[in-house]
């Protein structure tokens, strides 16, 4: 216990004795982690956005002839039994016209005088999350054709193809850019810590000369790295919060061409904690790597 107190005291005193270096290390870590955080924020919101788009994926089967109530029940039961289907709704001709009228809003006058059966009745199928893919949609469409003889189907085949290539590209860019940012953060942080240790190389040398063990020499520096890392991580979250609040919230909305009602979210609590933890990890790792270089007995 006394040893822990002693090491903690030495770490804090070291930090206090070179405030400039210490602040530089915390600031560097904060900025590096905030860069990774901004990227996470963009990826997270893009994911939310594509999830919204995916939720819109549906298969619509238009029916030439309105089925009787018993026939409809039978069709709905069959369709609901498809493993891919989450919900199946029958939209009658009247419902379709009502929807259309509502959608036209002020221009709904255009529809005056039209017969109620001008639009076809349809079956709208919403798919389960894991089946919101091009292949699954195609499979559902094929089954509707073969088993229920529904020929007039609409499921945005071309749009789905484009959407999938877009999300694949997004994932690829995410991995490459994210990997690069993390690598840059590790590189910058470990070099900053190296600089702070370089400034104290005399102290390290003297410690080895007076018979200090490696544990005695390294522990305070590792604690220092840990504390600086945590502070850097917290600073990164604060920077991110500021950026989100003042810039990204509106900026991303414009950049991502988000639909109305979609808000740019901040990182969830777990991710904020993960950034602080990443800071702590980076601090310790950076200190260990730098100490290997500067402490030689």
């Amino acid at each position: 216990m006394e040893a822990i107190r002693y090491f903690l005291f030495r770490s804090l005193r070291n930090m206090a004795s070179s405030p400039l270096l210490c602040s530089a290390a915390i600031l560097t870590m904060g900025v590096a982690l905030a860069a990774v955080g901004v990227f996470l924020l963009v990826v997270l919101n893009l994911q939310n956005l594509t999830k919204d788009w995916r939720d819109d994926i549906q298969v619509v089967a238009y029916m030439d002839k309105v089925p009787s109530a018993t026939e409809l029940d039978e069709v709905l039961q069959k369709v609901k039994a498809f493993p891919e289907v989450e919900t199946a709704i029958f939209v009658s001709k009247t419902d379709a016209l009502q929807r259309f009228t509502k959608r036209l809003g002020e221009d709904s006058d255009l529809l005056t005088g039209l017969r109620a059966d001008v639009l076809p009745a349809s079956l709208e199928l919403q798919l389960k999350g894991e089946y919101q893919t091009r292949n699954a949609v195609q499979q559902v469409a094929d089954r509707l054709k073969s088993e229920l003889k529904l020929e007039d189907l609409q499921y945005g085949k071309d749009w789905l193809e484009q959407f999938e290539s877009f999300t694949t590209l997004l994932e690829l860019v995410g991995v490459v850019l994210g990997g690069f940012l993390v690598f840059a953060a590790v590189f910058i942080v470990s070099n900053t810590i190296k600089l702070t240790l370089y400034a104290r190389r005399d102290e390290l040398e003297i410690m080895t000369l007076v018979g200090a063990t490696l544990r005695f020499i390294k522990t305070p520096f590792i604690i220092e790295g840990l504390l600086q890392g945590i502070l850097g991580g917290v600073l990164a979250v604060v920077i991110l919060y500021g950026l989100h609040h003042f810039v990204l919230k509106d900026g991303l909305q414009v950049l991502l061409l988000t639909p109305a009602g979609f808000t740019i979210e901040f990182l969830p609590r777990e991710m904020q904690l993960a950034i602080a933890a990443a800071g702590a990890f980076l601090g310790v790792l950076g200190s260990l790597l730098a100490l290997r270089r500067f402490v030689r007995i």
């Binding site: 005399d202 003297i206 018979g211």
Partner: peptide
């Protein structure tokens, strides 16, 4: 090696003192 160094005191031409620490702290260090 640190345990060997605890039996051997070393004095250098350039003193090798920690300039940011007091005289007391420098001696206490070892």
């Amino acid at each position: 090696v640190p345990y060997l160094r605890r039996q051997v005191g070393v004095v250098f031409q350039d003193y090798k003192l920690l300039n940011s620490r007091t005289v007391y702290e420098n001696v206490a260090f070892s």
